[in-house]
Design a binder for these strands. Structure first.
Lengths: 154, 154
DNA sequence: CCAATTTAGTTCGGATGCCTGACCATATGA
DNA sequence: TCATATGGTCAGGCATCCGAACTAAATTGG
């Protein structure tokens, strides 16, 4: 790699990409090591958007930037593990509320612990202040650019 | 979302995940707007690991953390767009060197420009110093945690 | 109150992106 | 020289997503 082309290795997108992959792998690995092999990173795209008092499928899909068909499939898969269940929405006869089960809340607690482990590992490498700064900066970027992205069909 | 569960929205993994998705979408969008709809983000997992004097398939797969079968498929796809080509490796009769074509180098230049646009947008939101700090921190994290991840078969 | 429209969700079919296993051809080294 | 390692391919499969077309319930405008 010539100096002139150092940008190819050393750019924000690539760094973020590598970092997020390592970080998420670490969480999945830690979860598995502690008896929770139920879900993959695709499913976490569901659980992380699932409110504790339940969320409708269409809303889940919107939050995850997926079509409702894709989210429906994910919901069915996670439902088979027993971590979530579908309940009728009392406010709307068409709708179903996707909710954590008791077992699901236990999984969520385990996920929280695995997340903390991965975060602490990053704090060990970068220091607490740097990690705080990083979260703040990324959050600011996301908020500023949100809504400037094209929408999905579905 | 209760205060007790604020971690669910405000954690490093999620922030990085959102940021990287927005950033990469921006690059793909900008490339498309400038006459380069050839490649998707999956293909960039190839091109970003492709040296300017060519790289062997197995090495590409290793760098991208994919199996050689998967990388072979990506190579075939990108080859069909005319951006890369396979050449016999003079140093090894079994091997093929994957290389950018002339058109491929033009694409790489366009990619560079789109990347700069996306990076500059981030600098507008966060400031130049913050973005530099971010790249440095993520790079440090990646280097520190690299190799602590389990390897792939292939 | 009823017809037209919108909205929540499903079913079906298909593309994509990745994997494992089995294999062939060439290179390497005891 | 032949056993082993390495570069790459072929066949088959699974997971994750999409679009189109549909059902049923809710909403809205006369």
């Amino acid at each position: 790699m010539t100096l002139r082309n150092a940008w190819r290795r050393n750019n924000i997108g690539r760094r973020m990409n590598e970092a997020v992959r390592i970080f998420e792998n670490r969480i999945i690995e830690h979860l598995k090591d502690h008896g929770h092999a139920e879900l993959t990173s695709a499913h976490i795209n569901l659980t992380r958007n699932l409110d504790e008092d339940g969320t409708r499928l269409t809303e889940l899909a919107r939050r995850a930037s997926l079509t409702k068909q894709s989210m429906s499939e994910l919901v069915d898969q996670v439902e088979r593990t027993g971590l979530i269940e579908k309940r009728p929405d009392p406010a709307d006869g068409r709708a179903k509320l996707v909710c954590f089960t008791e077992k699901g809340f236990e999984w969520l607690e385990a996920f929280h612990q695995s997340l903390e482990v991965a975060e602490n590992e990053m704090r060990e490498e970068l220091g607490v202040a740097m990690v705080d700064l990083l979260v703040e900066a990324l959050g600011k970027y996301v908020e500023a650019r949100q809504g400037k992205q094209p929408d999905l069909a579905g």
